[in-house]
Write a protein that binds this DNA or RNA. Structure first.
Lengths: 253, 253
DNA sequence: TAGTGGTCTAGACCACAAT
DNA sequence: TTGTGGTCTAGACCACTAT
């Protein structure tokens, strides 16, 4: 019927986007059945394997679920808030319609503390580049960010980069580093004097502390980011999607 | 060469496990190249499409990365700590070799507070089942857990279930509910009197608070879990894996 | 029994990287 | 030029669900 034409974009990806927008627009409601694989295959003039590739991506995003013998359905969640995944923290805010202002407190070379060196896979004491920034929204301080990265990369980053963009944007788009996994650990801590002063909080106020280790696709550490959030103005959210894989080999329950 | 035989388990899944164990055992080191798709296809007597399905799963797990024209490689991360994904929080601890003791403080029906009702998609004031538990490790209180779920399910859960298993285990294995997405939000809060007394902490001590909304594959809310961790004894970790998808349609930068 | 998704095959051509 | 992964096709058979 309505074939996919743009051959510079993979067919499965075009279909993904079509189905995504059908879902976003509400044309297909939660719990409603999608056309079958065969129908989609015929409607768009592509093979069933290609249809399956598109559907698999949407399932792993949590937009669709499938039942063998029944069909493919839209998740209830599909129309709710869509969380952003693995983008800069700042994007979370952008998506809420606020524009954070970023002020740079420090950008210099320091000798790597043990924890940083450990994460970066370098000997302690080696020089690394450290950035300290404060992010504010509507004039109120929200978070203190401390980034450590190897000087080879750190020296190629300008102050302007870091007031205009997130560190993740700079790493990917300016330095062209293909990023892979980010490991984050989240803790509740008490504000110390430095954090309290930067965030205009009181000492001993609860602070949400996030340590992020950013890696390349190859798994090589690129950066360690320590972020301190005022607990009253930020919460960290994640969506975890279950791996619905059958056929476990040896159930060690 | 060495064919895959067990036809009750999908071929791609068997290959996944073989490759996983090759990586775990250190037989294939980080950054080393894996056999090509064609070689794997011949070695195990399966088609290239099936090989690709297995490799794709390992890539999405962060164990492998692929470069067009170069090959498939093992991630550095592959040999590091493997984080558990989307299991009960208790599993995190089990994997660290500790056995938590769980004590039930309360298991009864209450009228749903607004926040809970909102998450569960029911009118406020409706009866829901509430469980309160304290989890301790080696005699020291670690966390306070408060679970709310619709009575239809809550009443089928015994005290014994909840001292022996995680709530997620009970939902999946006992109640046989296929779980899909879990949305968690993490905050730093101050301990109030109740939390402080249960966790043997001081009022105003920092507490890591996690609100989890558990859903079925269909996206229907099943449970809201509020967990309060002593900040000095727990941190929350996640691994986010970048969607390495090219061919963005309209870059709205 | 008919219809759905789940698995699998044996090809083909392309884009990219190394030589 | 060769070899790699990326995309795509046109089938086949199976497992599960509904009727």
């Amino acid at each position: 019927m309505s074939d996919l034409y743009n051959r510079s974009v993979p067919l499965y990806y075009q279909l993904e986007n079509i189905l995504r927008s059908r879902i976003d627009s509400g044309e297909v409601q939660p719990h409603h059945r999608l056309p079958t694989e065969q129908e989609l295959s015929q409607e768009y003039g592509i093979s069933r394997a290609t249809v399956r590739q598109a559907l698999a991506a949407l399932v792993s995003e949590g937009l669709l679920y499938r039942k063998q013998g029944r069909g493919t359905f839209v998740t209830e969640k599909a129309r709710q808030t869509r969380t952003v995944k693995l983008t800069g923290f700042t994007e979370d805010l952008f998506f809420q319609g606020v524009k954070p202002e970023i002020r740079i407190l420090e950008a210099r070379s320091v000798s790597a503390p043990e924890r940083i060196a450990g994460h970066l896979g370098i000997p302690p004491g080696i020089e690394v580049t450290r950035f300290k920034r404060v992010r504010s929204v509507e004039g109120t301080a929200l978070s203190l960010m401390v980034n450590h990265l190897p000087p080879a990369w750190g020296q190629r980053i300008s102050d302007r980069d870091l007031t205009q963009h997130t560190m993740l944007w700079v790493l990917e788009e300016k330095l062209r580093i293909p990023l892979g996994m980010i490991r984050q650990s989240v803790e509740a801590v008490k504000a110390d004097a430095e954090i309290a002063s930067h965030l205009k909080a009181s000492v001993f106020d609860p602070i949400l502390y996030i340590e992020s280790v950013v890696q390349t696709v190859e798994g090589r550490p690129v950066e360690v980011a320590d972020t301190y959030f005022r607990a009253d103005r930020y919460k960290y959210t994640v969506e975890l999607i279950r791996d619905r894989r059958l056929a476990k080999p040896a159930p060690a329950r």
